[in-house]
Structures are given as structure tokens and as C-alpha cells.
């Protein structure tokens, strides 16, 4: 699962409608085999970007490559590699779940009947697949949505706010499923959301967008947790003494705040204990991603 080259390259993409610039010179590369998050407040331009990726909207400027295929120049080549749900998975309600899948299977080369059955089994719809979609619950429609998106074993799965309207149980299942898909099958998953808490749980990397501009790209999970320096609070009985003993650190109430990495924390703890200080608790004080996100997107201001 070595990530040789990015699955998606968004190169200087802009979208203008009338005088409004919805997306402004966006550059983004999505490495393969990851769950890649696309985070931004409502109206930031997530859906617009995804619509351009899948050819639902024209690209005003720049281009998007899926693998080697340009969405503008080789639409069919690009779409062969993508499965997507853009906003809600709308299905033909008068058809059965199976007929819906058959419909999309016919549109992609090489999807066999066996593959359809396999996908139905995977998303757990085997018992209801021959019923009309109008009898399905939202959760079932979502599963059918995922099924149509993965039928043709796409290299890239694009999901626009997939957790909207799902209950916590449904969100958990989807999350586990997406991670499994990415990490065992090597499918790259590009998933948008305006909820940071969700992104933190399911994504390896998150790109943050605000008012049509890329604000930041954050790596959340790397292979083995690389250690970073973090503000750490040591709750002790005598904070001033502790700070003096260590020769560093700021006193904050009953705690000493020190910036250290994993090993440093253990070492400091040992020194404190050896110096006769009672340590009641050690906690990392990283600004939560939430704070960082709010800071970056500037809160308020709907784009």
C-alpha cells in the first residue's frame, strides 16, 4: 500500500458563477490508500469542489486529475476510477434496491452479477434488496448509496457529508467501514464534513477549506504515532518548588506547565518524584483540533 502517486490532483481549480468565485485556485493532492477529510463550515465550497471532481459542474479554471485522467479531457477515463455519493443518495424509489444496483452496474465495465451480490452482502442489505426502495429507511438508502458507489471497485470513493442524518450507530458503522475499505483494500476515500469531531475519528489527513480557499492540511494519523512536543500539565502538591526543581515551566494553579515529548514527560515525572514532589496527575494540554479549526476558519462568517 505504498502511496506512489496521488490518486487525485486538484490543480489551480476555480469555480465562478456569474461574478461570484465559489472556489478560488484550489490546489490539493490526495495520496492513495487514505481516508482523506475535507473539512469546512457550511458554504465553504466542499460540495462545489466535489461536484467538479465528478463532472457534475464545469471547472472554470484549472483541472482535476484522477490518476492519470483529466476530468476535463478524459471524463470517461476519470469516472471509471471514481465512486461517489454527492449529498444524499437519491435512488429510483419505484425500483427495488437490486434493480437500482443493476442500473449502475450496467454503466460501468466489468461489474458481474457475482460482484453485485458480494457488494449487497457487504453493506448488509441481503434481506431487503428485492424490495422497492420507497420502503427503505434512510440508513438503508445510505447503505444502498455506498453499494452503488463501490460496485465497480473504484480507486477513489467520494462521499459528501455522508453522516448527515445518520444516528450515532450508523455513523460508527460507516466510519469503521470506510477505514476498513481504505486500509485493507487500498481504496482512497475522500470524505467531506462540517463536523470536526467526525473527521478526527475517521480521517488520516484533513484538508480545511474556508470561503473557497484551502486553509490548511493536517495529518491526523500517521503509521505509528509520531511524537510531538506538547504542552503538558503536571498536577503537583507544591507547584513553585517543582518549577524551581526543574528549572523551567510555568505555574498554573496547582500545576506546572512544561512543553515536552513522550520521553521528556517520563523523565520529568521521575525527577519530580525523586525530588520529593507528589505528582497527582499528568495531562496533555494540546489545543484541541476543534480550537485550531475554529481559529483557522475564523468562526461565524458563512462563506
Amino acid at each position: 500500500m505504498m502511496s506512489q502517486e496521488p490518486v487525485v490532483r486538484i490543480k489551480g481549480v476555480s469555480k465562478r458563477i456569474g461574478r461570484r468565485t465559489l472556489i478560488d485556485k484550489l490546489d490539493l493532492e490526495i495520496p492513495s490508500g487514505q481516508v482523506y477529510g475535507f473539512l469546512g463550515p457550511n458554504g465553504a465550497g466542499k460540495t462545489t469542489t466535489i461536484r467538479m471532481m465528478v463532472g457534475l459542474m464545469s471547472i472554470s479554471e484549472g483541472d482535476i486529475y484522477i490518476g492519470q485522467s483529466s476530468v476535463r479531457e478524459d471524463f470517461e477515463g476519470a469516472m471509471k476510477q471514481i465512486g461517489a455519493i454527492v449529498e444524499n443518495p437519491e435512488m429510483y424509489k419505484f425500483l427495488t434496491g437490486y434493480q437500482n444496483l443493476l442500473h449502475y452496474a450496467r454503466m460501468s465495465p466489468g461489474v458481474t452479477k457475482e460482484r453485485i451480490d458480494e457488494v449487497i452482502h457487504r453493506v448488509g442489505l441481503s434481506n431487503r434488496i428485492h424490495e422497492k426502495v420507497k420502503t427503505y429507511s434512510l440508513g438503508m438508502r445510505q447503505r444502498l448509496g455506498v453499494a452503488q458507489a463501490i460496485l465497480h471497485r473504484p480507486k477513489l470513493l467520494v462521499l459528501d457529508e455522508p453522516t448527515n442524518g445518520l444516528d450515532p450507530q450508523g455513523i460508527r458503522e460507516l466510519r469503521d467501514y470506510l477505514r476498513e475499505l481504505a486500509h485493507t483494500e487500498g481504496t482512497t476515500v475522500f470524505v467531506s464534513s462540517h463536523l470536526l469531531s467526525e473527521m478526527e475519528l475517521m480521517c488520516d489527513t484533513v484538508a480545511v477549506i474556508k470561503q473557497g480557499k484551502l486553509v490548511d492540511v493536517k495529518v491526523l494519523k500517521t503509521g505509528e504515532e509520531t511524537e510531538q512536543q506538547a504542552e503538558t500539565a503536571f498536577e503537583v502538591d507544591k507547584p513553585e518548588e517543582a518549577a524551581a526543581l526543574l528549572g523551567t515551566g510555568a505555574v498554573d494553579g496547582g500545576s506546572v506547565i512544561i512543553t515536552a515529548d513522550k520521553e521528556g514527560i517520563a523523565e520529568i515525572n521521575a525527577r519530580l518524584v525523586a525530588g520529593g514532589i507528589r505528582v497527582y496527575g499528568i495531562s496533555k494540554r494540546t489545543r484541541s483540533l476543534e480550537d485550531q479549526f475554529l481559529e483557522m476558519t475564523g468562526g461565524g462568517q458563512i462563506g
Binding site: V54, G55, L56, F75, E76, G77, M79, K80, I82, A84, I85, V86, E87, N88, P89, E90, M91, Y92, K93, Y104, M107, S108, P109, Q148
Partner: peptide
Amino acid sequence: WGTIKLLLIRP
């Protein structure tokens, strides 16, 4: 129906 979004993202 909104199905156009799934219909037009095929090869």
C-alpha cells in the same frame, strides 16, 4: 428525483 447526480458520474 435527484438521481441525475448518480446517473451522470458514470464513465
